[in-house]
Amino acid sequence: MSANELSHLVKMANQIASNIGLGSTEDEAVDKVVNHISLFWARPMREKICANMQESADDLNPIATKALVQINAKL
């Protein structure tokens, strides 16, 4: 059941969005996900998930997707 790196990153981004954005507006939730990923993910991980957003579009949840768009803009 070994996930490949990309699917693992997608799963992690979704998990963060599910856990961190509670009780917030969507914009606040997106900000929190952006902040968390920026603080804790290595640059190659951010680059990899952002470079493959289209491929993962169906798997990413909406908050994670919006957050990754912002992260991509900062790379």
Binding site: L9, A42, P44
Partner: peptide, 18 residues
């Protein structure tokens, strides 16, 4: 100034060959 890989991420990247 950028954070690095955690163990789990290191192993994922190793499997990928990077």
């Amino acid at each position: 100034p950028e954070p690095g890989y955690r163990i789990t991420n290191m192993l994922d990247a190793a499997v990928e060959g990077t």
